[in-house]
Nucleic acid binder design. Structure first.
Lengths: 341, 341
DNA sequence: CACAAATTTGTAAACGTTTACAATTTGGTT
DNA sequence: AACCAAATTGTAAACGTTTACAAATTTGTG
């Protein structure tokens, strides 16, 4: 009826539980003869080890906690794909915690990390009081942490990270608009708390600065990384006199919202208004017009981050943190054109 | 250095471990005086119970496995939101397994279910050989299972489910096109293995049948529930002579792909071609034109399914399975119009 | 105050696995 | 055959928690 334990297998095979355990975990330490005997017993009983008991005894759960804003976000869902792939390959399970849902405070996440005996954590989101909080709990158990997608916050400097160069990518996106002849370039950013957002804004400002254009008050609007947020942001942008002729959006989801709102306002994109996004999400290609954007190697980020984390779990944390920068790329489609003369 | 155990707390508070345990789990069974003593000790040590050991001892993990095609799918990501909310409220953790990733066979999932001592499973996907496989492993431990989003497969008839009436909804969608005056109505379906897809096709066929229209060979094309699949499907549909003047897509993602492909072919939507989708995903509202579709209470489905599952876990499985049907609704936007005369 | 009843606390076993360590077997060498 | 080393197996403790059960304490009653 209930799950069969190692004892039953041992009894049936006529050996000790230790031998069964060895048979499962270190087959080479067991004689051919007993091995087949035990394997036979395992098959007939349908035994499978109680992972809970294993983890409990070994002090290792092979579980990794992934903290991110939202799995529903098309970008992070791609990152998750890479994460799952790598985790599967390395034999780890993933537990997800979404910060956007706000179901847990940083302390709670920290507490969960230790109480659930997670082996490590992948941090794909920046929460303002996060770093320090985590650090305090972390100091208890020297828990491996890897930061992904964002540059690491100063408080987390001791940890490794995997991400693209958001500043450079934002510069490139903005530069692309400037090169087309735009000078009134606006930006729709995300929450101020997000480092990722900050970096992209930084790149935008840098590109504008390098071009000798002063960013006007009202050219930068917070779109909260959401479709609806971007729509109001777009309206605000279009209320400017003179209004920007091009807009850089900190992610594609906002670009889609901005695009829609611009069309609602009777503007032709890209003829009346150019829009460039960030992430190259799935729907970017089929929007109308198809969205010009910055492509991120989302899956690779997830994969690399997990591999790095696993190696820290298994070999101990390296003496110094390492930052792995993956390449981004400008994906030119049809939402950007020269401004009307 | 390492995590503090209940023993240390007991020692510090000058009581037995049993008392500490009671203090944490059944505070009312302990005298006020010792309670404050213990709580004080807990605070100073920073003790938090080892969940692993708890689960191990209690034989309950408070973990639920959710099996679904893909969390990246905008519809399922909404369902997941409801799931997380409910799981959080009931004190359960979620472990996700995506069938689309194909990282695990049905047996492996079943094995994981028992070896990881999951308390129950929420099945949001139909995999052909799934039902029977699961049943076989399930018979070992009478594991609670609830089916969501789809009607239950015959093999799973003994389990409860939570979903909308996909057949009725598909009838409604198709009827909406017919009412506009269309008679050549095509459909882009999903994988044949998916029950959800089958039900929607069934509804389509029923509506056509009731209208006395014979569904022509070539009017039903498999779009594999993906954007790209839908694009080829749309091309195939437009190759028909005469071509359909309206298309019902089994989900919004395919509708977006179909829409894009139709525009690529020079067609005006809805003037030259009407398109109706299913799910009412986030991007449906901002597509061009905004997508007419069937809205599902995705979050509610996830929430209800979890509550049902939890009650089965806690109170035992009910004598007979219960199917909970949630309401859907037609969301009229601008991708459907009368055919050109 | 004595006693019983009720409440609170402690003792110790149990959950299923892994792993030092000890005991046994095997195989090779004389 | 006797011995030793090496390889294999068994014994038993340990991981941190919960929980019957027993023991001790408190409370209430006459």
């Amino acid at each position: 009826m209930n799950a069969v334990s190692i004892k039953e297998v041992a009894r049936l095979a006529g050996v000790s539980t230790a031998t069964v355990s060895r048979c499962v975990n270190n087959p080479e330490k067991v004689t051919e003869k007993t091995r087949v005997k035990v394997q036979q017993a395992i098959r007939t009983t349908g035994y499978s080890p109680n992972t809970l008991a294993q983890s409990f005894r070994r002090g290792r759960t092979n579980m990794i906690m992934v903290v991110l804003p939202s799995v529903g976000d098309p970008f992070f869902s791609r990152v998750m794909r890479g994460i799952r792939k790598a985790a599967k390959a390395k034999g780890y399970s993933i537990v997800i915690e979404e910060t956007q849902l706000n179901t847990m405070t940083a302390d709670e996440i920290g507490a969960m990390l230790v109480s659930k005996q997670m082996d490590g954590m992948l941090l794909l989101a920046s929460l303002s009081p996060f770093g320090t909080e985590i650090l305090s709990t972390h100091s208890q158990r020297r828990l491996p942490i890897v930061v992904g997608c964002e540059t690491v916050a100063p408080e987390l400097a001791e940890f490794s990270s995997v991400h693209i160069d958001n500043v450079a990518a934002a510069i490139e996106a903005t530069q692309f608009l400037l090169d087309k002849g735009h000078s009134r370039v606006g930006m729709i950013t995300g929450q101020a708390a997000s480092l990722l957002t900050k970096d992209r804004e930084l790149g935008y400002r840098k590109a504008m600065d390098d071009a000798g254009i002063e960013v006007q008050q009202g050219w930068i609007v917070n779109g909260e990384l959401s479709i609806d947020g971007a729509r109001s942001a777009m309206r605000a942008l279009l209320d400017q006199r003179p209004a920007p002729t091009a807009v850089f959006c900190a992610n594609d989801e906002m670009a889609i919202g901005a695009l829609h709102e611009a069309k609602l306002a009777g503007l032709l994109v890209p003829d009346d208004l150019s829009i460039i996004g960030f992430d190259d999400m799935r729907y970017a290609e089929v929007s109308d017009p198809p969205l010009t954007t910055i492509g991120q190697p989302a899956e690779a980020i997830g994969e690399r981050a997990i591999y790095r984390l696993c190696s820290e779990i298994e070999n101990g944390r390296p003496a110094s943190s390492q930052n792995e920068i993956l390449p981004h790329q400008l994906v030119v489609r049809q939402s950007v054109a020269a401004p009307r003369s």
